[in-house]
Design a protein around this nucleic acid. Sequence first.
DNA 1: TTGTAGGCGTTATCAT
DNA 2: ATGATAACGCCTACAA
Lengths: 344, 344
Amino acid sequence: MAAEKEITIYDIAERLNVSATTVSRGLQDHPTISKKTKQKIFDMVEELGYRSNNFARNLRNQRTNTIGVIVGKLNSHFQSAAISGIAQHASKNGYNLLISQSFELLSHEATSVKTMFDSRVDGLLVSVAYDTENLKHFGDFIKKKIPVVFFDRMLSQDQYTNIVIDNRKAAYKITKHLIEQGKQNIVHITAPLVQNVYVDRLNGYKDALREASIEFREENVVINTLSMADGELAATELLKRKHLPDGVFVTNDICAVGCMLALKQAGVKIPEDIAFAGFNNDPVSRVVEPNLTTIDYDGYEMGEVAASHLISYLNGSLQSSRTDTIVLRAELIVRASSLRSTQL
Amino acid sequence: MAAEKEITIYDIAERLNVSATTVSRGLQDHPTISKKTKQKIFDMVEELGYRSNNFARNLRNQRTNTIGVIVGKLNSHFQSAAISGIAQHASKNGYNLLISQSFELLSHEATSVKTMFDSRVDGLLVSVAYDTENLKHFGDFIKKKIPVVFFDRMLSQDQYTNIVIDNRKAAYKITKHLIEQGKQNIVHITAPLVQNVYVDRLNGYKDALREASIEFREENVVINTLSMADGELAATELLKRKHLPDGVFVTNDICAVGCMLALKQAGVKIPEDIAFAGFNNDPVSRVVEPNLTTIDYDGYEMGEVAASHLISYLNGSLQSSRTDTIVLRAELIVRASSLRSTQL
DNA sequence: TTGTAGGCGTTATCAT
DNA sequence: ATGATAACGCCTACAA
């Protein structure tokens, strides 16, 4: 495949009548190389169109300058925003990205982890799959002390760094808001209670109920995989109930929208009959009618923060504190889907 | 950073009392190595937890097993679906991905191309930026005969392979549909007419007008960057016109939705006053009310096809035909935003 | 069927 | 301030 021969530091050295060592050092801005020599080197680099060979360098340096990223699905608003933030920060710092998706399945995730390990990534950024219950499959990384940073979802405070939001508080705030609108029988639609994300949100929901002296009822918690179709299914289930709920808090905007649309089609008035709240501030939340009350948090920022922490570890500036938990901002955005008509 | 020493083929060779050459060959399933020896090698690989070092291999082999991907923005429905498809196919074939975004700017794109070149990717998959007018910045790749495959957007039939849809025909079909609904004064909202994608869609739009003997009018073409906000801006502009259009065909669902929402807020009835059509079948097209008529085409599939073609080149099975243009399926999806009320 | 030897391009060590 | 040398781990002519 390769046509012409690649220019190496030897070619430069030869033209300049210096050693390859000098060229190598000059390229790295080593202090012991004179300004004049460095200038000559850089000029020759330009002239010959030299590009350094990462493989030789990585082979020699035992590091790859590559960060592995594992997410559930690339094509969700939140995840792709996070990747975008990661990509931005990584490329700014000279790191390449190896991206793979788990399709929200532990089995795929484990395979990806192995691939990443075999590719010798310098570190890993992960948002775990729905059904990931423990972190055993990251054992190789622990053993080799390769840093792993989890973002959005987390399983353990102990061994890893996590970048998250305060899910419990956010869920509390949004549930409280629904209660303040006069709602008493609030259904909570969420994903399997494996991830802290969903456990915490459920707890926040319970906190708000408790505060308002509303009894928590098990049947008001609906579990699915938070797709739009799941939202529609949930709607048909709700419609069969003897007592319709008067509020629904879904842990994902897309699913909330699916549910809202199906209920509307069945003649339910939103927010009068049932008030709605979602989570994530996905663009669709401003398209659905009425606009969806939600929790806003910034995937792009979360990606940036996760990448910047990982890179700090890699650069040695944060070696000692490998188990931070960083909590990012998340805020309630009130829209028409949850407001009494008098407020509209 | 690295703790314990890595296992190499030499370690395996030593334990087995064979040469490293034999191990290397065994690992590659070379025909001249006996079945028995191969088995012993694989067993020892398992026992010692050997993983091959890509850097050494790449250094030696002069290829990277890495594919570069450049897209406009990661966080758009279409692009992330495409990446998802690419990632899937690439990983299945043992290729890594280097992903970067141009933010729809030629300047960023050119930088990315350079980075990719310096990273010595084996090939490139690109969806060019809005303002990319020529492919000069891919010159290094041509010179070195490194294959580049363009998807969705394309600039030239000659030097590269392109994976596209028939944009002209799709635009023709959807415009014709609007005309069949009785619309005569149809505005076309699109991106700068640099990309074939937008030129072709404009031509399709014109084709349909011509066929119906409707005069094409320059002022009915609105150019922006197709964001939701751009759609809102376009709406205010339309509202100022002496004669409101009775139909709008936008080359992107997100922008169409922004425009629809703003018009609705101003009291315009859709589809009675103005019928709407979009492009891409983004999920929001089924959320907005009325649901948006659009053109469906599959980003995931396009990504897969693009990746599979590139990989075929790389594997040598397609060397000769480096300039195919593959046209994928795209179909009209009619929804309420464009139907006369009698049809509803 | 297996082994020997050299090189891919870079950088660290030790020397000058 | 600069150089010679070895090593990173793998692959492949050539030899046996």
